[in-house]
């Protein structure tokens, strides 16, 4: 190593450290780039997410037919559905409809299989809980009847709206081609 390169090494070290220090100092007096989640943002993150975002699963029990397609399609069996026949009224009721968020891998196969689009991904992603049991979502609190699709369309306006929402979700977002057609159209 020659004397010239030795001196040059020292000079390079000093000047590059000096320059680096100016850059970091300029960041110190600048505004941080990160934003304060969750309490210093103008709108909740959930509202800014794209509609096809695969968040935590939600089920609209009013239009669930109890076909068990989602339970069969789930590759990790995180959905458990219980259906019971009422002896007196001869009506089939849900006893439970649980989705274990701990196990769910957000593959979206259940939403694709659903004939009415009642099970779907929401925009919700904050699943923090103090124990794993708190992460099991219970959609049936007391025995509720199954939904029966009527021939010639739904007549109850409230239910008709929900059916429309479900079918729209099914057409646009839960299809394997990614709803590209719907987005283009």
């Amino acid at each position: 190593m020659s004397v010239a390169s030795y001196v040059k090494n020292i000079k390079d070290t000093v000047t590059s450290v000096f320059e680096g220090m100016t850059i970091t100092f300029s960041h110190l007096v600048r505004r941080p780039m990160t934003i304060q989640y969750p309490d210093k943002i103008p709108v909740p993150i959930q509202e800014t997410l794209p509609r096809r975002y695969r968040g935590i699963l939600e089920v609209d029990m009013d239009i669930c037919t109890g076909c068990l397609a989602c339970e069969r399609d789930c590759p990790i069996t995180c959905i458990t559905i219980g259906i019971e026949m009422d002896k007196e009224t001869k009506q089939r009721n849900f006893t439970h409809f649980d989705i274990d968020i701990c196990k769910c891998m957000y593959c979206g196969l259940c939403a694709e299989a659903c004939p009415t689009g009642s099970i779907r991904h929401s925009q919700e992603f904050e699943g923090a809980s103090y124990n794993p049991a708190g992460l099991v979502r219970h959609f049936v609190t007391q025995p509720a009847p199954l939904y029966k699709p009527k021939k010639g369309g739904e007549t109850d306006p409230k239910l008709a709206e929900k059916v429309d929402t479900g079918l729209k979700y099914l057409d646009e977002f839960a299809t394997p081609d990614g709803g590209a057609a719907a987005e283009e159209g």
């Binding site: 000096f18 220090m21 934003i35």
Partner: peptide, 23 residues
């Protein structure tokens, strides 16, 4: 000279690289 360089660095910041939460 140090503070002159700091001012230079601030002026040459790249605000377009700032994090944008709304995609």
């Amino acid at each position: 000279y140090f503070f002159k360089r700091v001012v230079f660095q601030i002026r040459h910041a790249r605000p377009e690289l700032y994090f944008k939460p709304h995609i």
